[in-house]
Simulated assay, not measured.
Amino acid sequence: MNKNILLLLIFSLALAGCGTGTVSEGSANGESSEETVNEQVKESETEIPAEETGTEKEVDNVDFNQYRSPVKTVKTFSQDEFTITHEITDQNGDYVQELVKFGDVSTLSIYEWNERGYSLVYSEENPQSQESLIEEFETVESPKEIVSISNKGEGGNLEWEMVASNEEVTVPYGSFKGVILMKKTITSETTGQKTITSRYFASEMGLIKEVTEIDGENGYTIVTELESITK
Rank of each mutant, 00 (worst) to 15 (best):
residue 2 N to W: 14
residue 4 N to D: 15
residue 8 L to P: 00
residue 8 L to F: 14
residue 17 G to W: 08
residue 21 G to M: 15
residue 27 S to D: 01
residue 27 S to F: 09
residue 32 S to Q: 13
residue 37 V to T: 08
residue 40 Q to L: 09
residue 41 V to W: 06
residue 43 E to G: 06
residue 46 T to Q: 12
residue 48 I to M: 07
residue 50 A to M: 12
residue 50 A to Y: 08
residue 53 T to P: 00
residue 55 T to S: 13
residue 56 E to G: 13
residue 57 K to P: 12
residue 59 V to E: 03
residue 66 Q to Y: 12
residue 67 Y to N: 04
residue 71 V to N: 10
residue 75 K to S: 14
residue 78 S to A: 08
residue 78 S to M: 04
residue 78 S to D: 07
residue 81 E to W: 00
residue 88 I to H: 01
residue 90 D to M: 13
residue 94 D to C: 03
residue 98 E to I: 10
residue 101 K to W: 03
residue 103 G to A: 09
residue 103 G to W: 05
residue 103 G to H: 10
residue 106 S to K: 14
residue 106 S to W: 11
residue 109 S to P: 03
residue 115 E to Q: 14
residue 116 R to K: 13
residue 118 Y to W: 05
residue 119 S to D: 11
residue 120 L to D: 03
residue 120 L to N: 02
residue 129 S to V: 11
residue 131 E to W: 07
residue 136 E to P: 03
residue 136 E to K: 03
residue 137 F to I: 14
residue 141 E to T: 01
residue 141 E to V: 00
residue 142 S to V: 03
residue 144 K to D: 04
residue 144 K to F: 04
residue 145 E to P: 02
residue 147 V to F: 01
residue 148 S to Q: 12
residue 149 I to W: 01
residue 151 N to C: 00
residue 158 L to S: 13
residue 166 N to A: 14
residue 167 E to F: 08
residue 172 P to V: 09
residue 172 P to E: 11
residue 177 K to L: 02
residue 178 G to E: 14
residue 179 V to E: 06
residue 180 I to K: 10
residue 182 M to V: 13
residue 183 K to W: 05
residue 190 T to H: 00
residue 191 T to P: 10
residue 193 Q to N: 02
residue 196 I to Y: 01
residue 196 I to V: 15
residue 197 T to E: 13
residue 203 S to W: 00
residue 205 M to K: 12
residue 209 K to W: 06
residue 210 E to H: 06
residue 210 E to A: 11
residue 216 G to S: 08
residue 218 N to S: 13
residue 219 G to R: 04
residue 220 Y to E: 14
residue 223 V to E: 08
residue 224 T to Y: 04
